[in-house]
Design a protein around this nucleic acid. Structure first.
Length: 372
RNA sequence: GGAGGGGUUCCCGAGCGGCCAAAGGGGGUGGACUGUAAAUCCAUUGUCAGAGACUUCGAAGGUUCGAAUCCUUCUCCCUCCA
C-alpha cells in the first residue's frame, strides 16, 4: 500500500479527527490545508518557501500537465517531484474538475470526456484510463479517480446517472492503476445535493475499496448552508480508517466545518488566487489591499501573523505593490494567505488535541467577523 | 514674417450640425474570486436629485429650431518655409 492513515484521536467536543497520513514522500499531519499548484507550481512560490511555511502536501493537475508540458516529458525528467523540485507529498487531481470548469469546451459520454484545449483548441479525449496513465507518469503520491463533477443546480435524474457513471469510471481507474505500491488512488463521492444519492455513491465506491475517499461536487456555487448540510451528512458515510478529503474548500468557515465533520484534507485555489487579485485573509477577516483606506496604513497585514510578509512589510507598501502590479505584491500576499490557512490548520489540530475545537471555532469566528 | 495643423470631461484620445454628459484606453473608487482557461473578471467614474433637471468640449461673440461640431475675433501649442 502506498499510503496509510493513522487516527490519533477524536476531539471530544466536536468529533473532529486528528491523524497522520504516511506517504512515499513524507508524513502529513491532518487536518491539513493543501496549497494548489495546478501547473506544477504553486503560483509565485518556490518549493523552499512552501517548506518554510510548513506546507505538507501540494496539489497539481493531471489535465493541465498533460496538455503542457506533457506527462511523457515529466516522466523523462524523473517524475513530477523531481521536475518541480518538491520532495514532499503531491496529490494530483484527475482532470475531473475540468469536466465542470470547462463545461463549454467539452462533451461527456460513457467512454470519457472530449475536451477542446483552452490553449490551442485541439481536441482531446480524456478517459479514466488516460487520467491514470498520466498520473502514473507524473508519479504523484495520491492520485484521484476521474469523475464527473455536476454543476449546481442539476436535477436528480442527471445527478443519479452522473454518479453511476462516476462509479463505473472509478472501477476503470482502479483496473488501470498498476502502481499501487507507490501511488494511492482515491475515489470521489458525488451525488450533488441529494442525500440518498450521496449514500448510493459512497456505498458503491466503498465496495471498490480505495485507500482514501474524497467528497466532490461541493463548492460549485450552491448556498453555503446547503454545502454544509451536504458535508455534514456525507462525511460520516466515509470509512473511518482511511483519509477523507473534501475537494475545493478554502474559506475558514468551510475548513472548520470540514474538520468538525471529520474531514482530514482540503485544498483550494482561493488563497493563492485572491492574493494575486489583491486580497488578504487575516484573523479579523478578508481585506482588499486595493482599498484607499490602506494607503497610509503602516501596520502589517495581520497583527497575529508571523509570516515573512507580516514580519517585514506594511499594508501601505503591499498596497503600493498591488496597485503598481508589481510581482512582489502577489508574492507577499500569496505567502501570507497560504501561511494563514496552514496556521489555521495547525491551530485546528492543536484544538482537537485539547478537545476544544468548538471553542476555538467560536473565538476565530468572532474575530474573523462570521459572528457579530 | 509666410504656410499649415491643433487645443474635448483627472490623463491620453475619438467625435466634426440633432441619436453627445460625449466612443475607446489609462487612472480613480468599490465588488467578486472556493478539486486554477484567472497577476483575472464585473460595476462605477461632470453636478444635484426618483424617472429627470442642471453646468461642460481653450475664451468671447455670432449663425441655427438645435453647436464639441459652422462663422468671426482673441488666446495658447506644434510642424514646415524664410
Amino acid at each position: 500500500m502506498a499510503i496509510r492513515y493513522e487516527l490519533i484521536k477524536e476531539c471530544k467536543q466536536s468529533g473532529a479527527r486528528l491523524g497522520k497520513i504516511y506517504t512515499p514522500h513524507g508524513v502529513i499531519d491532518t487536518p491539513i490545508f493543501m496549497p494548489v499548484g495546478t501547473k506544477a507550481t504553486v503560483k509565485t512560490m518556490t518549493p523552499e518557501e512552501l517548506q518554510e511555511m510548513e506546507a505538507q502536501i501540494i496539489l497539481s493537475n493531471t489535465f493541465h500537465l498533460y496538455l503542457r508540458p506533457g506527462h511523457e516529458l515529466i516522466k523523462k525528467a524523473g517524475g513530477l517531484h523531481k521536475f518541480m523540485n518538491w520532495n514532499g507529498p503531491i496529490l494530483t487531481d484527475s482532470g475531473g474538475f475540468q469536466v465542470f470548469s470547462l463545461d463549454k469546451l467539452r462533451t461527456i459520454n460513457e467512454e470519457g470526456v472530449k475536451f477542446s484545449s483552452f490553449i490551442d483548441g485541439s481536441k482531446h479525449l480524456f478517459t479514466p484510463e488516460k487520467s491514470i496513465e498520466v498520473q502514473n507518469a507524473l508519479g504523484s503520491d495520491i492520485i484521484m479517480a476521474f469523475d464527473e463533477c455536476p454543476a449546481y443546480p442539476s436535477d436528480k435524474e442527471y445527478v443519479r446517472n452522473s454518479l453511476e457513471m462516476t462509479t463505473r469510471w472509478a472501477k476503470r481507474c482502479k483496473e488501470a492503476h498498476k502502481q499501487t505500491d507507490t501511488q494511492a488512488l482515491f475515489g470521489i463521492i458525488q451525488g450533488g445535493m441529494y442525500r440518498d444519492l450521496r449514500e448510493q455513491s459512497a456505498k458503491e465506491l466503498i465496495e471498490l475499496d480505495f485507500p482514501g475517499y474524497a467528497i466532490g461536487g461541493l463548492s460549485v456555487g450552491e448556498p453555503k448552508e446547503l454545502m454544509i448540510e451536504v458535508l455534514k451528512y456525507t462525511a460520516p458515510m466515509m470509512p473511518k480508517d482511511k483519509p477523507r478529503y473534501l475537494m475545493g474548500v478554502g474559506t475558514p468557515n468551510y475548513i472548520f466545518e470540514a474538520a468538525i465533520s471529520g474531514i482530514d484534507m482540503f485544498d483550494c485555489v482561493l488563497p493563492t488566487r485572491i492574493a494575486r487579485n489583491g486580497t488578504a485573509m487575516t484573523s479579523s477577516g478578508r481585506i482588499n489591499l486595493k482599498n484607499a483606506k490602506f494607503k497610509e496604513d503602516f501596520t502589517p497585514l495581520d497583527d497575529e501573523c508571523d509570516c515573512y510578509a507580516c514580519k517585514n512589510y506594511t499594508k501601505a507598501y503591499i498596497r503600493h505593490l498591488v496597485k503598481e502590479n508589481e510581482i512582489l505584491g502577489a508574492r507577499l500576499l500569496t505567502i501570507h494567505n497560504l501561511n494563514f490557512l496552514l496556521r489555521l490548520s495547525e491551530n485546528i489540530r492543536t484544538a482537537i488535541k485539547n478537545d476544544r475545537l468548538l471553542d476555538y471555532k467560536e473565538e476565530f469566528y468572532k474575530k474573523y467577523g462570521y459572528i457579530k
